[in-house]
Every structure is written in structure tokens, then in C-alpha cells.
Design a protein around this nucleic acid. Structure first.
Lengths: 342, 342
DNA sequence: CCGGTAACAGACAACGATTACAGTCGTTCG
DNA sequence: CGAACGACTGTAATCGTTGTCTGTTACCGG
């Protein structure tokens, strides 16, 4: 690769002039410089640039799992906002591991001007790790231990779970099960609490054996569903708290040949790509995805712009609304005639 | 952030010694240095490191669309191989645009030691852009104009399309339609040719109005499917050449209330996440995804290791096999009794 | 006790860009 | 006509790290 010195030599000027030309300043020999740049196929070395200027013009996005369509959609939203901005987006995956996340954050600090992070776990302390570097961070979906240190964009998990519970109650269900996520995540806790509390408030007690917990993945949902569907008396409705778990749940339902919603109603948190095309189509709590990413990116850009002025703005926390999408996978209670109906 | 000079000062040694300590060499004052590093929370500046050493210890992965589960799976395969290696993986999306891809490649060149690229189009000339920088590149899935310049990992597209055609022929179909991808991509051309040639060889002529072409996305598949299902006589079987197009096709089938496989058989290239859970479950040509990514990464690592010795190895081209997954969405021809059956 | 040799130390020059500083012109105005 | 000014220019320092080069030890055998 050719360097700025090569260009300067060929154009017969100093490197300073070339640098000035590149940054858009008026330069006498700009024609010769342009010609030299083209002839040498000169591209400024981004590493050298970053070292000197202290800014990398790139931002890092860290997600637990790239293959999860939900995260993919969030990333999409982020990218859309950056499309013709000066920043380049780098994506890294942490495989849902706190250790990997630590490595990735260390790697990214100093390589990026800002970070959008979907934490893998809450034990992992982004604050302790990230604080000294002073680079702006926006948390998405899950929150870290000290919420107040960073901007964040989350959804109303408890509210969404409440919507699901209310929907099932309205259909007359009373033997209701939940496939919850890890309780050491805010998301897992909030959805679990929102759901169970709503049932309790309505006087419906959940059988402890119908309160399943698993990892936020297909296998977790599958195993939990097998246990639930095998229990006696079996639940008449199951709420799955994560898209991947819902896939596992559906797989189990399918394998066991359980009729939906005839024998068991199914409702998930998060829509699926093909949710509307399933038989029956999936009833779910749906939430903004791309919009969530876009919002996070805008928050980050605001931080990046303000960074030089000394007054640190207080952390912003945005809670986005979720909605209930009623399709065909939920229906009235099967055996005993429904008690009430709307 | 503290620098190596701060550490050296605190430990009472030279920066060279600190550098040596960090690179694992034996150093007399290693205890004092370690102490100083911890106290100052010292992290080597990756930018400065890269500038000096000429290597970034990171590799770039460029995909057309992050939200496509197929690409996500490829990336997953890539990451798994890198898990505990020295390289960090950065992912960038090009939104299927040649222009964006150009920008991304420029951005990445000099920021990464190697590249894994799934080209957005073939017109875009990665070779012209990437050649001068001399960094190793591995192409995945689609190939660029001059195949021989880079290592590549692809699948047997023509073979997969042939499998699909043969399957439909065996079921007795004769009015067969294809929803093809852009013919300016190798993938689009190969799948189209493999399918049509197989039909022709079997003496089955395809109605020109049953030869649809669209973008590799949901909308393209949807629109094409609407046209096909509205044509008279309508095809008794439809082959969709891409996973997103298949989703569009299924959506159209669903909306129009066309029975599958009763009225029309559906077969897709690439499986879907929920393919097995659909009603009927999707028959498709499935191919390795994570394995493809893993293989590409291994190829790249090999290149990165050899880079210093002067003899440039010839480009490797790996073609991976695909397989037919027969599920329920394909069946015998509806109205006229099937001519032959196995 | 001395010369030779490991084994380590520090000083300093890179890497490729940006930028403060100090010229050097040509032009304009009093 | 000379001074002041504007519009540029080049020189050189700098960013944080690594690697080369040249010491400086300590320890060994003779």
C-alpha cells in the first residue's frame, strides 16, 4: 500500500498539503495531488488516522447471539440509522457467555468510539470494564447492574407478560404454565413476575410444576415443554417467554401430536418470522425490534456529539411499548366449558 | 486511559521492558510491572499496536443481509472457529447493495488482516478493490468475476436445483414453475439452469410465464407467487430458489387459500427455521450453513499463516454438497392422475 | 582473577497520519 | 512605496506501541 508520503513525493508537495487536501481544505496543487492519489490508488490508513486523531469513526455492537432473529432485527435498525453517517458499524457476538463478552468488550474498547451492548448476563459488569475508557455505551433489551450509568432502551417486559396473562384469563384458562428464562436476567425476572402476578391478582394459582425455567434457547423451550405436556393434570395454556423457546415449545407440541389450541393454547413473547404462517398462526406479544435498534443508535450518536463538552448528561432510559397480537394458537379452555367469555 | 509509558514510569523501567513483559518475554522486574499494570488498569492501545506491527489481529466478515438466517448461520460457523484463536471477528452488512459493499470493503481494508466476503453482486469487483491491499480474502456462497483470484466456498447450486426438479418429476408434475433469483448472480443463474435443464432433459417444457425472476427477498417471492398462482393454467408445483422467497411464496399460498400439496406442491432451496413445523412441513433442498462458514474461516486462517512466505498458494475452491429433505409440502399431481410413482 | 558469554536492560527510530508553528509568497491599502 | 494581511506552504512534533541496536550486568570456566 502507498502512504501519504508517496503521494506527496509524486505530487511534489509536503505530506501536510496532502493531508489538508484530503480533509477538504483548499490547496494550491490540488490537481496534482488528486492525480497522484488516483495513480497510486492511495487510501488513507485508518489505523494511523485513529491513532493520531483519537477517534476511530466506528462503533461496536455487541449481541449475545447473531442467529437470533430478534437481535438481527435490532442490528438492522442500528445499521439503517448509520447508513450514510460517518460511522462504521462492527458487530460482535458473545455466544451468551459472560467470559466471551468480557473479551469482546476489552477488544472493542479503543477500537470503537461508542458501543451498543445487549448484555449476555447481568453479572457481567460492563460498567467496571467500560467505565475507565470513557466511551459512550447504550444498553439494549437487557440492563446491567447499575442502570444509571448508561443510556438504555428496553421494552415493557412486565406489561407484555401481563397482556399475555390477561388474554389467557379472558379465554377462561386456569391451569396455566410458563416457560421462563433465566431468573438472573432482568428480562427473565420481569416477564416471569408480570405473568405470575397477573394470574395471582386474578385469583389463579399456578401449579409449581407448571413454572418452568430454562435457557433462552430452542433446547430449553423444548425440554421444558416436554415436561409440561407430560405433567398431569397438563396445563391448558402455555406462555413461552422468548422466541427461541417458543420454537422449542412448538417443536414439542408437534412431536407429541398435541392439538393447538384444541388441547393446549400457546402464546409467546416475541413474534416469529413465520409466526403468521404456522398452523395455527401464533398468538404472541410483539415488540418493536428495528425501532429499538434505531433508537439506541440515535441515543449513541447524541452522546458521541456531546462528548467534548464537559457537562455529562444524565443517562436516558427509554421503555418501549409492546402489543398483543392475537392469532389462532390461543383459544378457549378445552374440556371443562369456559367459565366466562367475551 | 493510561499508556505503556505510565506503566513504565510507575514500575521504574523502560517502555521496552513493559512491552517485552506484555509479549511474554522474561523480564527481571516483572512483578513491579504487573503491579503497575493492574494499578493503572492498563490496556494496550490496539490502534497503536496495529500501526506499529502491521497486523490488526482481526478479520472482517461482510454479508449482504444480517437478518437472513442463512447468513447468520454462516457467521455463526465462522465465529465458532475463531472462538479461542487470536483473531477477533467483525461483521458488516451491505444491504445487498454494490455501493454499500464498496464502502464497507474500503473501510475494512487496513482495519482487518483478512476478509470473508459474501458478495452482494458480481458486478461489484472485489478484486479490483481488494487486490492492491494484498490481504487474504475468502468468498462464500457467491463468487466474484474472477474466481481464480480468491479462495471460495460454495455449494452445488445446479445439483441442488436438479434434485428439486427430479423430485417433482418423479411425483409426476409437468406444469412446473420456478421463482428464480437475479440472473446476474452465479447463484441465481446456476439454480435456474440446473432446474430448467433437468426438466428439459426429461422432456418437460416450462411455460415462459412460469419462469419468474425476482430479488432474493420476501417481497420478490411473494409477488412472483401471486403472478404464478393467478396464471391459467396454474402450475402444479413451484420451486423457490431462496429461503426468503420461499417465505414470500408461502405467504401468498396462505393468503389465497391454495391447498398444499393438494393444489400446488412447494419446494424451496434452503430450509427455514420453522420449516419442519409448518403445515405441511416444507420440502426443501438443504445445505450446510455453519459448516460452510467454518470451512471458510479455516481457509482464511491458513492464508493468514502462510502470508509471510513468498510463494502464493493457488486459490482453493470448495464446492459443498446439498441434500434433498422431503417433507410434506410436495405431493403427487392433483387433477390428472400421476403418470408414474415410486 | 580475568575473558567470554548469556541474559537482560534502555535509548531510539520507526509505523502513517494530523496539526501547531513558523515561514513565504502575492495582494491590497494607507 | 512600504507595511499589513491573507492564503497558502513545509517542517517537525506527536499519537502509543514494537523492534533494533547497543550497552550493562552476572555468571561461568580456565
Amino acid at each position: 500500500m502507498s502512504t501519504i508520503a508517496d503521494v506527496a513525493r509524486l505530487a511534489g508537495v509536503s505530506t501536510a498539503s496532502v493531508s489538508r487536501y484530503l480533509s477538504g481544505q483548499r490547496v494550491r496543487e490540488h490537481e496534482a495531488i488528486e492525480k497522484a492519489c488516483i495513480e497510486l490508488r492511495y487510501r488513507p490508513n485508518p489505523t494511523a488516522r485513529s491513532l493520531r486523531s483519537g477517534r476511530t469513526r466506528s462503533i461496536g455492537v455487541v449481541v449475545p447471539d447473531i442467529t437470533n432473529p430478534y437481535y438481527a432485527a435490532v442490528v438492522k435498525g442500528i445499521q439503517d440509522v448509520t447508513l450514510d453517517g460517518p460511522y462504521h458499524v462492527f458487530l460482535s457476538g458473545t455466544e451468551e457467555s459472560a467470559e466471551r463478552q468480557h473479551d469482546v468488550l476489552v477488544e472493542l474498547t479503543g477500537r470503537a468510539d461508542g458501543l451498543i451492548l445487549i448484555p449476555a448476563t447481568e453479572q457481567s459488569e460492563p460498567s467496571r470494564e467500560l467505565r475507565p475508557s470513557r466511551i459512550p455505551v447504550v444498553l439494549v433489551d437487557r440492563e446491567a447492574e447499575d442502570v444509571h450509568a448508561f443510556d438504555s432502551v428496553v421494552v415493557d417486559n412486565a406489561g407484555g407478560a401481563r397482556l399475555a396473562a390477561e388474554h389467557l384469563l379472558e379465554l377462561g384458562h386456569e391451569r396455566i404454565a410458563i416457560i421462563g428464562g433465566p431468573l438472573n436476567t432482568t428480562v427473565g425476572r420481569e416477564r416471569h413476575a408480570g405473568f405470575v402476578d397477573t394470574l395471582t391478582a386474578a385469583g389463579v394459582e399456578m401449579d409449581p410444576s407448571h413454572d418452568e425455567e430454562g435457557g433462552f434457547n430452542v433446547e430449553g423451550g423444548y425440554q421444558a415443554a416436554l415436561r409440561l405436556l407430560g405433567s398431569r393434570p397438563a396445563p391448558t395454556a402455555i406462555f413461552s417467554t422468548n422466541n427461541l423457546m417458543t420454537i422449542g415449545l412448538l417443536r414439542a407440541v408437534n412431536e407429541l401430536g398435541v392439538r393447538t389450541p384444541g388441547e393446549v393454547s400457546v402464546i409467546g413473547f416475541d413474534d416469529l418470522d413465520l409466526g403468521a404462517l404456522l398452523t395455527p398462526p401464533l398468538t404472541c406479544v410483539s415488540r418493536p425490534t428495528e425501532a429499538q435498534g434505531a433508537l439506541a443508535m440515535r441515543l449513541l450518536l447524541r452522546r458521541l456529539e456531546e462528548s467534548d463538552d464537559a457537562a455529562p448528561r444524565k443517562a436516558t432510559r427509554i421503555v418501549m411499548d409492546v402489543a398483543l397480537t392475537v392469532r389462532g394458537s390461543t383459544g378457549p379452555v378445552p374440556t371443562p366449558a369456559p367459565k366466562r367469555r367475551r
